[in-house]
Amino acid sequence: MTDVTQQSVPTASAARRAPARQGLQPGQALMRYGFFGLVIAVFVVFAVLRPTFIAPGNIHGMLMSASIAALMFLGLTWIVAAGEIDVSFMSVAALSNMTVAGLVSGGADWPLATLGGLGIGVLFGLLNATLVAGLRLPALVITIASGALAASIAAAIGLGTSISLSTTGYVGALLDMRVGVLPLLAVIVAAIYVVAWFMQEKLTFGRYVYALEQNRAAVEEAGVPVNRLMFMLYVLSGVVSAVAGILLAANLSSGQPYLGTSYFLDGLTAVLLGGMALKFGKPNVIGTLAAVIFLTGLLNGAALLGWTDSQRQIVRGSLLLVGVGLVVYARTRTHKRKTA
């Protein structure tokens, strides 16, 4: 439908009054940083309600699972930020997880097995990238299909059930390492996110990702290799999902063919909810990281309070719905500002 509001001719005086980007109004500051306050609030509330919530063991566990989830959602964050979708990431993680478990239980050593898992991630990343970015086929249906393919193979590797592992190899050793009180993994993932933030904010890469979502035609006209950029994003999503799957194999000491389902909602929720932080509704890596910590804390704390799976699932769904609503609301606000 043509946007009639866009055709309105603003008067010179009204247009000149449009706010400049200098200085944040209190409302904007709340929107930009409010989410971080919410993250802290969740942790404070649960710490008060259940002191075990901040016991070192629990904190460590939360850090581990948050790190793995954050890694898995990195590629998804930028794909959604660029205005596309990937619903295969969690199944690719499950497949890489089962590949590692299958190879290890079949007698392969861990380095070889992790290489296999990684290869799977690259393979599915390339498949999505070729079909969606290369051939410009519809992203949703293609990634539904490739996700189903990955999930199906994951189940087939374990003949329909999970594979438990007796050793966790060098990956397990890695997961056990600590830097001071922090798990090494958390430090590594934090470092990856710092690099990602750098790419997003300081390199042309991030600039084009966001510009793509806003006006693909403008970016193409400027001579940016748009297809190559989208191609890389899908490959990246496949690779980080696979790495997360490998880590999960060691963390859970098993291969879980159906582990994807729980990450599906969490991934999209983290990306969209996190988009509210810093960038007014645009998915961004710092937002995703904060949202992953928020979700981990919330779900973990809720479990300590004795909430059922059902209640936690409803919280997940509601949060995603709230995230979508907020994003659309923030966008229309920005849009109004443009035409006011």
Binding site: M199, L203, T204, F205, R207, V219, V224
Partner: peptide
Amino acid sequence: AENIFLGQEHRRSGLFSPV
């Protein structure tokens, strides 16, 4: 300014040039 130089943020144009 960013729109004017979109795609030419850096002398070496590419996806990973510094902005």
